[in-house]
Structure formats: C-alpha cells, structure tokens
C-alpha cells in the first residue's frame, strides 16, 4: 500500500471504483460542504474537492477536504499549479497529510483568465507532470523537491487528470505515459461523451501496457439540459460532445431531459464496467450532488464495497 486510502484499497482489491466531486463554497461556513457531502457519503469511494475550480476563488481545497473527512467521507484533495509555488505546495501537502488527507489530484489548473481574478499572476512554478513527480519523491524518497529529508514523509495516493479528447489526439496516450513515468497512481479523465474516441484511447493505452500501471477512472457528467450540452460542446475547451448526444436530449419531452441525461450516463457506466483498462468511474455531478444517490442507484454501483 502506498497510502492506505480507501480509494487505493478499493482499486487494489479489483473493485470497480466510483468517485464523486464536490466544489467548496464561495464563502465561509462548513454547512454547505456538509450538506453536499451528505448526498455522497456511502455512495462514492472518495470525493474530489476542487481547488479554485475555473479560477474562481473558493474555500481552500484542503479545508473543505477536512470537513468532508469529518463527515466520514474520503477526500481526494485537488491541487492546481496556477496558485502556488513549490514551497507552498509542499507545505500544504505536509499539512493535509498530517490532518488525514490520503489522496491527491495533481492538475495544471484552468488559466486565471477564466476566473473572477483575471488580473492575477499565474504561478505555474511547476506543471502538473512535475507536481506528480514531486509528490512521489516526497512519498517514496522521503525528500522535498529541493533534496532535504522530510520528517515522517506524507504517504499520498497520487492522482492526475487525462483528457483523451484534446488535440493532438495521438499524443494524449503518450502524455498519459509521461504521467505514469512521473509516478501517478490513478487518473481521472475529462467528461466522456464521445465514446468512440474514448474506446480508441483506451485501446491505445491497453496496447501500450499503460492500463496495467495506472488505474483509469472514466469521467462521467450527466447532462442536465440541452443548454448545458450545447454550452459544453461550444464553450468548454477540450470537451467533445457529439451531436448525437444533443439530438437524443432534444428528442425527449422537456420534463424528461435531465432524466435522459442520467440514462445516458448510466449506459456509459455499464459499458465502462465491462471495458478492459477502465478501473472505475469518476462522477462529476457538479452542483447536482443531491442527484448522486439516484445516479449511483441507477448505475448499479451500490452498495459500495467496504474494506478494512
């Protein structure tokens, strides 16, 4: 065991993992976090706590992670390279581990231009690839990036993101290979809508032997509305939404669109369960946390395995 986190145990035991996502509040107070967590508890193996997602200031990821932990849910602490240099990152990792955080997701982060402080100076002292390597060094060598020894090194299960849909497609699997070489243990993908492309990506990853070295969690976000699908298609960089999905949502009664979105997601999850090289699903039901119990139920991923 690298970290002994619940997510690691589940994946190592060969169970199909199911993880969720929770965005911290734009203000103080633990209630909102606890409320969202209540829908996720028992329905997911771990929950990603986003780090100033879309470059909008929110409660820090580690703080919200700790609240989630108090609720009996395992956090997956996200850290982006946009807001911190290597000193701040390492000290936050030490603190997070000390207070019980065991999983991390290492990301570059959306550019600050998208957020509520577009004037900010982006840090990007190191990139996500290098962040993975840094956490691994801290864990496996017990050393800081600078080379000095760490007293009681943090044992973190290291995650990263992969976007199989961004250009250049042929390079994506090599980039995944680079992340594996850096030391990533699990990868969550961008929201998948183009199944054909995803199958091709996974096949490449299988052929290169990558899926033996990393746990891939397929990213799923149910569409709530036709508007959301269209927005994702045209406005979100690196998102691939085929017209078929939009047509299918348009084809149902207006009151049934969200239901159809969940149906599509469940069909995808069924396929992922059988897909070689996919170790689980990462469900990003952002601002739709209360739907997670229903989605988990309909996707037949309950009850979640409990491992001591």
């Amino acid at each position: 065991m690298k970290s002994g986190s619940n997510l690691e145990k589940i994946l190592k035991a060969g169970h199909f993992a199911f993880t969720g996502e929770l965005g911290p509040p734009r203000g103080t107070g633990a209630e909102e976090v606890r409320h969202k967590a209540s829908f996720l508890k028992g329905n997911v193996d771990a929950v990603n706590i986003t780090d100033n997602q879309t470059a909008v200031v929110r409660m820090s990821s580690w703080a919200a992670s700790l609240i989630v932990l108090q609720e009996g849910l395992e956090p997956n602490y996200q850290m982006v390279c946009r807001d911190r240099n290597r000193l701040a990152m390492q000290s936050d990792i030490l603190g997070a581990y000390t207070l019980g955080i065991r999983n991390m997701l290492c990301l570059s982060g959306d550019h600050q231009k998208f957020g509520d402080h577009p004037q900010a100076k982006g840090v990007f002292d190191i990139d996500s690839m290098q962040l993975i390597g840094m956490v691994k060094k801290m864990r496996d060598e017990g050393k800081f990036l600078g080379g000095t020894e760490i007293l009681n090194p943090p044992q973190i299960f290291i995650g990263a993101a992969a976007n199989p849909f961004a250009d250049p497609f042929e390079w994506r699997v090599h980039r995944l290979a680079k992340k594996i070489a850096s030391g990533v243990d699990f990868v969550q993908t961008q929201c998948i809508y183009n199944m054909e492309k995803f199958r091709a990506f996974i096949k490449q990853a299988n052929d290169m032997g990558l899926t033996e070295k990393v746990y891939i969690l397929a990213g799923v976000t149910p569409m709530k509305s036709v508007g959301m699908a269209k927005y994702m298609k045209s406005k979100v960089p690196g998102m691939d939404v085929p017209d078929d999905i939009i047509k299918r949502l348009q084809g149902v009664d207006k009151t049934k669109v969200a239901d159809e979105g969940i149906k599509i997601a469940c069909e995808q999850i069924e396929e992922f369960k059988e897909m070689k090289g996919v170790a689980g699903v990462h469900l990003m039901a952002i601002e739709w946390e209360h739907k997670v119990p229903e989605i988990a139920e309909r996707a037949k991923v309950l009850p979640r395995p409990v491992i001591d």
């Binding site: 390279c81 946009r82 570059s108 982060g109 959306d110 550019h111 231009k113 998208f114 982006g122 990007f124 990139d127 996500s128 690839m129 290098q130 993101a161 992969a162 976007n163 961004a166 250009d167 250049p168 390079w171 980039r175 680079k178 961008q190 960089p237 690196g238």
Partner: peptide, 26 residues
C-alpha cells in the same frame, strides 16, 4: 504557452488553439 508548461499540452487545447482564446495558437 499561457501556463508556461514544460510538459504540455494541457487538457485545454482546443483544435489547435489555446484554452485562453481561440485566436491564440496552442
């Protein structure tokens, strides 16, 4: 690169342009 990445491209590459602007090549 808008993020000064040494190991790009990031997941925001959009048909050859950078996530910050469709007029900015990645």
């Amino acid at each position: 690169c808008a993020k000064g990445l040494y190991n790009g491209p990031c997941g925001g590459t959009n048909k050859g342009s950078c996530e910050i602007d469709t007029n900015q090549p990645c």
